[in-house]
């Protein structure tokens, strides 16, 4: 991304970068520091368990695992950039997957190639459309009815999850055409399909944020809503667009989860909400809005995936993992505040 869009103009960071040595410059920028941390985690795990961690099997399995929560984190990031938050991402992912799953279920596992292709196409359209509708609802309640984003997405998230429970009666939707597994489990050459989906989404979002007028509007809205309104920005349209995009990314994540699990259920990925907030905060996205880069988010996703694999090897329970993610979130936020204090001086 180019320099003028990088945050709020000349920061102490920028002056440091011009004067100091290359190593120092790397460590002074938040993204550089995160890159160093990510590499350190990777090296540490590679040294601790060389045969298990740096194996082709582990690396590919990691590449299949992270795209789903990385997509949810992208969705969360967009909401955070506007100064909001989207607590409904997991609800949207599951509801859109359940509705798309019903289309796939209608085709059934023994569908002919033609029917299966049709059903998969329909499922993708249904899922993205549901994600967009959910996003419009979020955008309307926040932009038009002036509900605080926390409340609006808390309420809508309950509705989306609740609809998912009500439609399925709480059980899983099963019985998809075998070809649907491609989205979550297939590979193009050696590159996993979910990774390609995430890469395309990440590059798309980075382009929108860094190279388009819409990206600048989001940044201005998130930095100072009042000033952006006086600057003539249609804050309602920006809000709606952002939550629609966020909803569609969440729906895409839902498709990946559904394909990997070969089923759709209203309570899948319930721990992903905290994880996606953690990734955003770790990736340097300001929860109060305005600042954040896709590159930071990608690095945060990678470092958490490495850690997660490490915890898997140590056979750490899910409860302990909950504790570790929560603790990490708190520590990173505290470190970030010290960073801000240092910058102000």
């Amino acid at each position: 991304m180019n320099e003028p869009l990088d945050g709020a103009g000349p920061t102490p960071d920028a002056t440091l970068r011009r004067t100091a040595s290359p190593t120092f410059r790397l460590l002074a920028s938040p993204i550089g520091r995160l890159a160093v941390i990510t590499v350190l985690i990777f090296v540490a795990l590679a040294l601790l368990a060389p045969s298990r961690f740096v194996s082709v099997g582990n690396l590919t399995s990691m590449a299949f695992q992270f795209p789903e929560f990385a997509l949810l984190s992208l969705a969360m990031m967009l909401a955070m950039l506007t100064g909001g938050i989207d607590l409904s991402v997991v609800g949207i992912a599951n509801l859109s997957a359940i509705l798309a799953g019903l289309a796939l279920h209608a085709a059934g596992p023994e569908a002919s190639a033609g029917t299966a292709t049709l059903a998969i196409g329909a499922a993708i359209v249904v899922s993205l459309a549901v994600g967009a509708v959910c996003g419009v609802i979020n955008g309307l309640t926040i932009g038009r009815f002036a509900l605080p984003p926390i409340l609006a997405t808390l309420g809508s998230g309950l509705i989306y999850t609740g609809l998912g429970v009500a439609i399925t009666g709480g059980s899983a939707v099963l019985g998809f055409p075998a070809a649907f597994a491609i989205i979550g489990n297939g590979s193009l050459g050696i590159v996993p399909v979910p990774l390609i989906l995430f890469a395309v989404a990440a590059v798309g979002v980075a382009f929108l944020l860094g190279r388009t007028a819409y990206g600048i509007r989001i940044e201005l809205l998130g930095t100072n809503p009042l000033a952006s309104r006086f600057a003539g920005i249609d804050d309602f349209m920006v809000t709606v667009k952002t939550y629609v995009l966020s909803g569609m990314l969440a729906a895409l994540a839902g498709l990946v989860v559904m394909s990997r699990a070969n089923s759709a259920k209203a309570d899948y990925g319930s721990s992903y909400m905290l994880l996606s907030i953690l990734i955003c905060v770790l990736g340097g996205i300001n929860p109060n809005g305005g600042f954040g880069k896709v590159s930071g988010l990608v690095l945060a996703v990678l470092s958490l995936q490495f850690l997660s694999s490490g915890l898997n090897m140590l056979q750490v329970s899910n409860f302990a993992r909950e504790f570790i993610w929560g603790g990490l979130l708190l520590i990173v936020m505290v470190v970030n505040t010290f960073e801000l204090v240092r910058h102000r001086r």
């Binding site: 938050i85 926390i150 905290l274 907030i277 953690l278 905060v281 929860p287 109060n288 329970s317 409860f319 302990a320 993992r321 909950e322 504790f323 570790i324 993610w325 929560g326 603790g327 979130l329 708190l330 936020m333 505290v334 505040t337």
Partner: peptide, 23 residues
């Protein structure tokens, strides 16, 4: 103490507290 956003802090402490309890 640190002036952090309340929602994100309490989401964090919720999982820490519950994680410590269950682990």
């Amino acid at each position: 103490g640190f002036g952090l956003p309340t929602l994100i802090v309490t989401l964090g402490t919720l999982s820490v507290i519950r994680g410590v309890l269950l682990t």
